[in-house]
Design a protein around this nucleic acid. Sequence first.
DNA 1: CGCGGCTAAGAAAGCGCTTTCATGCCGTCC
DNA 2: GGACGGCATGAAAGCGCTTTCTTAGCCGCG
Lengths: 344, 344
Amino acid sequence: MPSDPTIYDIARRAGVGIATVSRVLNGSERVSPHTRSTVQRAMTDLGFRPNRAARRLAVRGPNRARVAALMPFFSANFYFAVCEPLSKGLAGADLDLVLYNIQNREDKNRVLDRLVRERSCEGLLLCSMGIGQERVAQFRNQAVPIVSVDFPINGVPSVTVDNAAGEAKATRHLLRAGARQVALVSGPEAALAFRQREEGFFSVAGAAAPLHRAAAVNIEAGRAATAALLDAHPEIDGIVTVNDLLAVGALAEARARGLQVPEEVQIVGFDDQQLMEVIGMSTVRQPMGEFGSWAAASLATLLARPATPAATPTTVDSVELPVSLVQRATTRSAQTQRTLRPRP
Amino acid sequence: MPSDPTIYDIARRAGVGIATVSRVLNGSERVSPHTRSTVQRAMTDLGFRPNRAARRLAVRGPNRARVAALMPFFSANFYFAVCEPLSKGLAGADLDLVLYNIQNREDKNRVLDRLVRERSCEGLLLCSMGIGQERVAQFRNQAVPIVSVDFPINGVPSVTVDNAAGEAKATRHLLRAGARQVALVSGPEAALAFRQREEGFFSVAGAAAPLHRAAAVNIEAGRAATAALLDAHPEIDGIVTVNDLLAVGALAEARARGLQVPEEVQIVGFDDQQLMEVIGMSTVRQPMGEFGSWAAASLATLLARPATPAATPTTVDSVELPVSLVQRATTRSAQTQRTLRPRP
DNA sequence: CGCGGCTAAGAAAGCGCTTTCATGCCGTCC
DNA sequence: GGACGGCATGAAAGCGCTTTCTTAGCCGCG
């Protein structure tokens, strides 16, 4: 396959010099209308598109660094919450944000391969996903700093929360508030954060507690999972979930079955996303916005030119942000351990 | 101020040739450990960062086109809803998505200036914002296609909805359902979509109907605006808003005042964002996801290399997507015009 | 008719990097 | 002990574009 046409091809076809082509390209005044149209004709004929790299090189524009951000957009609120401060923070540090929507392992590998092969980014941000050590080494070799959000990676600074502790806290609260049988609605198996929350749940509820993994992270899936759980274990009176939307689904299902919440079933979500307060959903709050601002700040630090020559290599430490249980209307308070009403 | 160090600077400082520096840069095996570390030392000393453009030029990688997307992230749900299909669609067309978070006019001008000066994008996506015709001309001169989302721009293909019609429909419904005095909670004045919705509202409610513009697009602001409205006009029994979050705020304020919804006050939102169904909010649904996929598809078309030489220049037409009123629990049905309960 | 001034267009020199090819050095093998 | 092979390194040729410098026409004027 022939490579892209260059200004040489255009010049030849139009019977002019490359300087003239360049002038046309840049809208310079010093070109006769006739020549101009000839050249433009040649450009459209050949499907010419200027090589950006060559232009930037010639014009010696600033070498603005680019951050590639890989995100699996499965949960609208979470990813938006990190994107927003992230984009703001990176803009402040004069960094460009290139967003990649990663839906599966192939996506991820394709994008990462391109990134290292074409060296198309100066910084890398991984969100809710791991990568192998060989990958890490590839980027390290190219001096591309990596930061990770919502997922610990060996040798990569990351911002996380203690998912297990958060979910354990939620589970414990349900138990203290009188729940006899708690169950967990989890999400797709691939997500580490979800598995950690599962762990936290089982550490408190006991390994035998019922679990159902929803097929997706949305209300419908949460509702279906809850239905399955309730069908199999009618005695369930506490539902812990790994995500607010799943919790909303659980709430819908419980209500549809005529179960009083929180009197007959308590429900806890995870994230404390937008509108959970309005809905009255009890949930584990994680500071999603800080994920984004931490990532932006870290990348800015790592990509900053050493101000003084011989500066010590800058590094960034991983942080674990606190989570907290927000009690609202879908859980009872621990003190008021009302006795359960008998089920019909 | 001295320009960025190049491999020549590194080579000189390390006392080696530029080829060696390049080899170190690329992790080639054919460099002695001693030389390697000398070079690395020189690089960190000088704060060297390779010039991406030069590298891409030398390595002749594919010239992947980049789309710059300018978005004012003031409404989480809306922008996420367009971003998600957008990123997916662009990835499918082998285009990179560079995201710019635009918060005000200066942001916008700064980014646009850079974009044209540095020619850093092959395609431009404007979301919820206009630009002047000189700007349009600038990009046209550089053969950078523009598409607009949620905002009509002269000479630029755009995807929009009939905001005025949508809001008019909502207002009319309230009136048909028995509202005597409807009022509008709008948002920051800068947003065209909001002004169009205001128009639609007034066209039905009459120019004298009360309006209050919330300071921001969130629940708190919506609540404050509603409070102001209700204080000034206690007779209000129908509240139309330009956004769901504002409507949620209105709902909260109405309830806080002991007003029954929808018996004493009806409320309509706009967008039909996530969770509105759960909340039972009546609202005007606009197909936000299609905004994103339309934009991606259009850009892909406009940026496609003419397959055959001398192909006709590709263009894209503007589209207006339909909106629909979704009736839920915050409005009464038009048929059942119950008489209002007397207010306390 | 010749000369200066003006404009359109070409030649060529980079921009900062990669990569091939050439070079010089050393150790090795017959 | 001399030729040879391997290895680390340098020299130099691009990559596709912009831009300066130069040249070639052309006009009008004296």
